[in-house]
């Protein structure tokens, strides 16, 4: 008796309980990744539009389900529905409408990704070398006009797989922590000494796998000063969870002095 009453109450309240449980307690204090580079701002936009579209479609699905649940519920045994086999115009609509939305999203995605595919020609370069279990960073500058500079082949270079980059070492190498200047485009050439890792800066909303024997690249222009965690994202062995580094974005002038200090450290 009590069990049936309890069941009835639970049946009434469960959907609400479920909704409440899911949304409230596990909500993080700060739900947003704050865009800290020009590029991550446009990713944030595409993210929230996609979420909004998903919510609309999800509401449609759940709404239809709630409606049929109440409206078309059988009242007694032996009832039969209406023998409808299909409806061509309706089927065309729900094929074509999602298709249009997906095409629009694809075009936008290509547009955003295109920025990442076209790095500026002369930039500050940070070579990221991952290993079990940490990251090394060494500084270079690049320009197509360098005479007699060291040339590296960047496999899978953004936008132009056949290109080379002319780079010149700045004589600075750090381990576990590195800094970059605010408002200046920085290019990362990432590689690995042993297994595959991933160079991920969640705040910049981008990552690149570090693959032994490959020099893959990504670039960005940090806009906000701050310290950001760098994490390995690809399972790489027992030390995977502790494979971290920190990245500090500092004003230009501060960066120059930081670089100079580390250069003298290196030459000593």
């Amino acid at each position: 008796m009590m069990v049936t009453t309890l069941l009835r109450i639970l049946r009434r309240t469960f959907p609400w309980l479920l909704a409440a449980l899911v949304v409230t307690p596990a909500w993080p204090s700060d739900f947003l990744v704050h865009p800290v580079s020009a590029y991550s701002g446009s990713i944030d936009a595409i993210l929230w539009v996609t979420i909004a579209i998903s919510i609309v479609f999800f509401a449609l699905v759940v709404g239809i389900m709630a409606f049929v649940f109440f409206r078309f519920r059988a009242k007694k045994a032996g009832e039969e529905g209406v023998r409808i086999h299909g409806n061509v115009p309706l089927e065309i609509v729900w094929t074509v409408v999602p298709a249009i939305i997906l095409v629009a999203l694809s075009i936008w995605a290509v547009d955003v990704f295109n920025v990442e595919l076209n790095p500026p020609e002369s930039t500050l370069i940070v070579k990221v070398t991952a290993y079990q279990f940490g990251f090394d960073f060494s500084y270079y500058e690049s320009s197509p006009n360098f005479q007699g500079a060291q040339t590296v082949t960047v496999h899978n270079i953004c936008g132009n797989p056949a290109a080379f980059v002319k780079i010149r070492s700045l004589g600075v190498k750090t381990h576990g922590h590195f800094e970059i200047p605010q408002g200046v485009p920085v290019r990362f050439l990432v590689t690995s000494k042993d297994v595959i890792h991933s160079f991920w800066v969640p705040a910049f909303m981008i990552k690149r796998d570090t693959v032994p024997g490959l020099s893959s690249d990504m670039w960005l222009t940090p806009t906000t000063v701050g310290t950001y965690p760098v994490k390995c994202a690809v399972l790489c062995g027992p030390g995977h969870d502790g494979m971290r580094a920190t990245l500090k974005v500092v004003p230009k002038a501060e960066f120059s002095s930081w670089l100079a200090a580390h250069k003298t450290l290196a030459s000593r």
């Binding site: 446009s42 990713i43 998903s54 694809s106 995605a109 990552k207």
Partner: peptide
């Protein structure tokens, strides 16, 4: 729900953040 997050993962710029 799994389908929507699947579409999000297909969008390259989002995937670069969300994958792994």
């Amino acid at each position: 729900l799994g389908g929507f997050t699947g579409v999000m993962l297909a969008i390259i710029p989002l995937d670069l953040q969300l994958t792994e």
